[in-house]
């Protein structure tokens, strides 16, 4: 019957050694009771003893030393330890744990392929991919009011679809390396959403720009896709596929997407500095919509001009003050 568990974390993954007979020697030498492969650990690094009061840890290697509960363990000395305790053998981290210690509750994986587990259900992945393809083809068809060959649409489709599969593949490979299992379907769902949502937001933004006669909603949606979409999708993926805790999932997602966000931030700053500078071009809401659904009512010309006169007088006054200063 084991009395103590030694947990050692190699490359982020813990391994557990059940200790029942004492003393237990730990080190790189092959005659140790627990053989560790970390190169920063001494051949005979430490010994764990059982005493009447409990357990003691004795330092037997002096090369990189041992840290016990964040305090260095003096060379060739023994110290009583409470359980649980943390250990550092050179760069190798570990813990001494009571075998009776409670483990974290089980992460229940979704049973079967429910409709709403859209990350793991291949049908959803297929829907996202097909929808992206349809939206791309429709946009291309709508935006080119001339007769075109069907090959044009295929060529418009190839690059985004290929990129989508590359992104899915990269996500899947990273998962394989860290989790040692393939998760291609969830990776494809994430990549599908990553391409589909900006396209949909673009159309929704345009539609709402006409409805509200203002580009505010469109620019909010644009910034959401630039800055929030990728971190959100990754957080969701880490949580659902890697079972990472929400906080660490968010942290990892933010860290990983930092270069992309930095790129969009530079873009945004550039755009802001451009729009605050001088331009001879008038900037106004140019959107037109075949549906003609809008919040602004139709006014008589006189009423509209009277309204414009007051509004423009105020706006221009501010611009003039800005320039004459």
């Amino acid at each position: 019957m084991e009395k103590l568990i030694l947990e050692l974390v190699y490359q982020g993954r813990p391994s557990y050694h059940k200790l029942s007979k004492f003393p237990v020697s730990v080190g790189r030498a092959y005659d140790c009771d627990v053989v560790v492969s970390d190169i920063t650990v001494s051949p005979k690094h430490l010994t764990i003893l059982e005493t009447e009061q409990g357990f003691e840890v004795c330092s037997t290697g002096d090369e990189n030393g041992t840290v016990l509960n964040k305090a260095p363990l003096p060379e060739n000395q023994c110290m009583p330890v409470s359980i649980p305790s943390t250990l550092e053998l050179g760069d190798l981290r570990g813990r001494l744990i009571d075998p009776a210690m409670q483990v974290a509750p089980t992460q229940i994986t979704p049973k079967g392929l429910g409709w709403f587990s859209f990350l793991s259900n291949p049908i959803w992945a297929a829907i996202f991919v097909v929808m992206t393809a349809l939206v791309i083809i429709t946009s291309k068809y709508i935006s080119t009011p001339i007769q075109q060959q069907s090959l044009t649409y295929v060529s418009a489709l190839l690059v985004p679809l290929l990129s989508m599969f590359v992104v899915a593949f990269i996500i899947a490979v990273v998962s394989r390396l860290t989790m040692h299992r393939w998760a291609f379907i969830p990776a494809l769902s994430i990549a599908g959403l990553l391409f589909l949502i900006p396209l949909l937001f673009d159309h929704v933004g345009h539609f709402l720009a006409y409805v509200t006669t203002s580009s505010v909603v469109a620019s909010i949606l644009k910034n959401v896709t630039s800055f929030l979409l990728l971190p959100l999708l990754l957080t969701f993926y880490l949580k659902k596929v890697h079972y990472t805790h929400w906080v660490s999932a968010t942290g990892i997602a933010l860290l990983v997407t930092m270069p992309v966000s930095a790129f969009f931030a530079t873009d945004l700053v550039q755009e802001m500095s451009n729009s605050s500078g001088f331009t001879p071009m008038p900037s106004y809401n140019r959107t037109l919509s075949a549906f003609d659904i809008r919040m602004k009512k139709t006014l008589e010309v006189d009423a509209f001009l009277a309204q414009s006169e007051i509004i423009l007088e105020k706006k221009v006054e501010q611009l003039v003050i800005l320039e004459r200063d």
Partner: peptide, 18 residues
């Protein structure tokens, strides 16, 4: 025209019956 001549345009958009 350039920055020293004029301000930027201020615009107002709405819908009218013509």
């Amino acid at each position: 025209v350039d920055k020293s001549d004029v301000t930027n345009f201020a615009c107002h958009t709405g819908f009218t019956r013509i």
